[in-house]
């Protein structure tokens, strides 16, 4: 099939960008979306033009690197699917496809479709961990964990940190991402001792990165490739509520060790 692409091109962080139009001829339905872009890029490079920069690595839906808006939907709109796993058989001959980077103040565009998502890392650095050192830990079976809790923690832990939730949210809110980590650790006995401090510092870091707040619109859950549930946002709200009631002193972000 033959497609027309309208792709966001932007030289670097400080330059202005624009939508450029490219033809994508002879696209096979068996290609993944990224393979389609690879082929377009081969064509551009053969002509000596700079290829469209986009992020990807594992190409099997688990590393969370790939990231782009396709026709206004993060990851392209197939349920539970990252763009690297999206295949061209979902499009039809003659389609025009608009491709844009994630857009959020906290995710500046570095080039074309590549954004800087280090804000997510800083949120984890602020408290998304259990403060234990290597060694000296009790036997793995010393603390039984109810299967339902283990399963729920795993549901939350499945987040791949791709940022689609932020990209899709009308407020560019990172609540789904943050709530997934807070909920995972708050559900397991290993994470409970630190839950107050964790909720406070991760939320505080989230705010200072410039993400928006959640107004419960639900787009994040709909585009999330790991189908992380909005229930976790409710759980974060609950955790934070308890935390501000219990919290004697304000924890600072990054007060790690």
């Amino acid at each position: 099939m033959n497609l027309t692409l309208k792709v966001w091109r932007q030289k670097d962080k400080d330059s202005d960008g624009h939508l450029a139009t490219y033809a994508a001829p002879d696209v096979s339905p068996d290609m993944s979306f990224l393979e389609m872009l690879d082929v377009v890029n081969e064509g551009l490079m053969t002509k000596g033009e700079e290829p469209i920069a986009f992020d990807s690595d594992c190409r099997e839906g688990i590393c969370g690197t790939c990231s782009m808006m396709i026709n206004g939907v993060a990851h392209g709109g197939q349920k539970g699917t990252t763009v690297c796993q999206l295949h061209m058989r979902r499009f039809k001959d003659g389609d025009t496809i608009v491709i844009e980077p994630w857009r959020a103040r906290a995710f500046p565009v570095l080039r074309d479709l590549v954004t800087d998502r280090s804000a997510f890392d800083r949120i984890i650095q602020a408290g998304g961990f259990v403060s234990i050192n290597t060694g000296g830990t009790p036997d793995g079976n010393a603390i039984p964990v109810a299967k339902t809790d283990a399963d729920k923690a795993m549901d939350a832990a499945a987040c791949i940190g791709c940022g689609a939730c932020v990209a899709a949210c009308k407020n560019a809110s990172a609540m789904l991402f943050v709530s997934a980590k807070v909920s995972q650790l708050a559900t397991l006995p290993q994470g409970k001792p630190e839950r107050v401090r964790r909720a406070l510092s991760m939320v505080s870091q989230m705010d200072s990165e410039g993400f928006g707040a959640c107004t419960v619109t639900g787009s994040c859950e709909a585009v999330c490739p790991k189908e992380i549930s909005l229930d976790f946002i409710a759980q974060l709200n609950r955790e934070y509520g308890k935390a501000i009631l219990k919290n004697p002193v304000q924890s600072k972000a990054g007060e790690g060790a």
């Binding site: 939508l19 808006m69 026709n71 206004g72 939907v73 993060a74 709109g77 608009v98 844009e100 857009r103 959020a104 103040r105 906290a106 899709a168 009308k170 407020n171 560019a172 809110s173 410039g210 993400f211 928006g212 619109t217 787009s219 709909a222 585009v223």
Partner: peptide, 12 residues
Amino acid sequence: ARPVSYTDWKPT
């Protein structure tokens, strides 16, 4: 939180 808006955005 979103200084540059999308040219195309669907509310999903």
